[in-house]
Amino acid sequence: MSDYVLDLSGIRKTYRGGVEALKGIDLQVPRGCIYGLLGPNGAGKSTIVKILTTLIRRSGGDGTMLGKPIGDRETLQKVGLLPEHTQFPPYLTGRQVIEFAAGLQNVPSALTRERTDALLAKVWMTESQHRQIKTYSKGMKQRIGIAQALVSDPKIIFLDEPTDGVDPAGRREFRSLVRELREEGRTIFINTHILSELEPIVDRVAIMANGEILGEGKLDELRTEKTGYVVGFEGQLSAKSLSKLQDGDLEVDGGSVRLPSTNALDAQPVIDLIRQEGLVITDVSLKSQSLEDLFIGLVGGGSSPPPVPGNSVQPPRIPQA
């Protein structure tokens, strides 16, 4: 049995009109992890999930999910999905939504009641189970959405923008629930553009923009690539010193210089140079890059990332787990 629950190779999607939503996605998702797919709106994250759950057809490429070709109906019984912008029938109660999903997933009737009770408790919805969906808050709908995704006891769960519109308390509950699901041995695949949502829980992350994966790997490993000493200072560096630092592949950003090294000795020449300029050193520390830094570094700043041309951006090389 493959170690990967998802193994995608060269997945492409071109919509009518020639819009390329996915430009050849290669992705391997190991079993039993929380996998985060991060990217700005329009990056193609939801398109991947929609292809995997047969909502849309791929234009090219191939892959397997739980060892079976993408689109296999029987495999979908072992897959849970919380779609983006979920719309449950508003006339159903929370409990009925879960029972409806159980019926669709062919869960035996004897198991349905038991599982529904357990899932309602798991998502803290037991008390509100008999209220109609239309009376629920966004957070409550998302909880019921997660519960219905779990009713067939899936091996892999896709959560597409799961905390969009959910309040901070709801997000904390969500993170705790996702960790619990991982402990049960399930693989959780989270699509999001909210960085802070992933950072505390994710095992592996892929960053994508404009239909391409720009970086992929364990979060720590991705961070390690950019971990190094940061020297803070007050004042303005001369053009000569600035040029010297930049020629040495150091990142100079306002009042700080970032070194690509974790060796304290490598920081000494930089400190000397700043002192020679008569500037005051305010901070010398070893810093690792946050997910946000990583994201912005790969995707580009601003709310709308700059277009990524063809194959000009090389994903960082990350050792496989």
């Binding site: 047969t54 029987e74 019984q77 979920t86 669709l104």
Partner: peptide, 16 residues
């Protein structure tokens, strides 16, 4: 066929 309800209906065991 709306995005939200299709996600509930068409991604499960029954074929389209």
């Amino acid at each position: 066929m709306k995005e939200g309800s299709a996600g509930m209906l068409m991604t499960k065991a029954p074929s389209r």
